[in-house]
Amino acid sequence: MPMVEIKHLRKEYKDKPEPAVKDLSLELEQGDIFGFIGPNGAGKTTTIKMLATLLIPTAGTALVDGIDVVKNPEKIRSIIGYMPDFLGVYDDIKVWEYLDFFAAAYRIPKDRRPQIIDDVLALTDLNVKKDSYVESLSRGMKQRLCLAKTLVHDPKVMLLDEPASGLDPRARIEIRELLKELQSMGKTIIVSSHILPEMEEFCNKVGIIERGEMIVAGDVNTIARQVRGHQNISIGVVDDIERAAAILQGMTDLIRDVKVTNGLRQLNDADGGEGRGQTLQRESFSTKGSVLQVGYIGEPDNEYKILTTLVEAGIKVRAFYTPETDLEDVFLRVTKGQVA
């Protein structure tokens, strides 16, 4: 049974002519990290709020762990952790008091609360701030506190609406690391964000929404492949670059095109964008020699055939990898910049 199952979800607002969300369908398994991508006003927050029982869908169904979000909102709230896209924290309250209040609000027995508070504070790395007043925390810390609050009732599914919004790079990295930790704990996470390279790093599935419609959804690489019509593969060779290129160009059933790039250009490309630190490391590896950029059109599991052919032809292959999927590129290709 899917952990999250959305079928033909629709949301209309009285004061808006166009529906905020229309015919949205999605399935997520336990442990999936789903990146919800879309321009402002595309319907991400509306969808998340419908799952969080904060908005009633106009049509369609949404099940979380088999429970209908409309028919049984109380039960849903106990298994979902929802973090809104803004920092809502009470002043005049200490960090542990804030968490204790929400733990009580989730009906966690009083004797269990101190341990749970310690655990979520440790997870969010806020132990040292336990007795600090909430208002004294930095924005990044408040964001982590919100996440800690979301975790007090140990939800199976987490809905995180722009968790890294407005944070400085360090705080964003901290949130990202935290999400990876939650992923390792087996939580199913739906996260919306505008910072696409980060989404690409920890999401195994993404969905791109525009004007309330889910344009594409699924595995990141599959989507990229669908959108571009091919899968990029980078092949670093020690020498014989022309011969290697010729061999690859002959494999027309698997390869659409082959480009030869040199290492220097690769480094510049990789160094170019914000939040591409991980990409820089990987691309830097290929700067020693020439690199072949291959547009692979074969079956996803048959990439090895290219490598086998090259090695059998005596080409000294130094590196063979699929570069990070450029989610920004995919996003720009499928969206038109329109809002609902």
Binding site: L54, E74, R77, S78, P84, G88, F102, A105, Y106, H153
Partner: peptide, 13 residues
């Protein structure tokens, strides 16, 4: 105003 209302609504209260 302090944007805690939605979080309060979301609890089991």
């Amino acid at each position: 105003e302090q944007q805690t209302w939605e979080m309060l609504l979301y609890t089991s209260l």
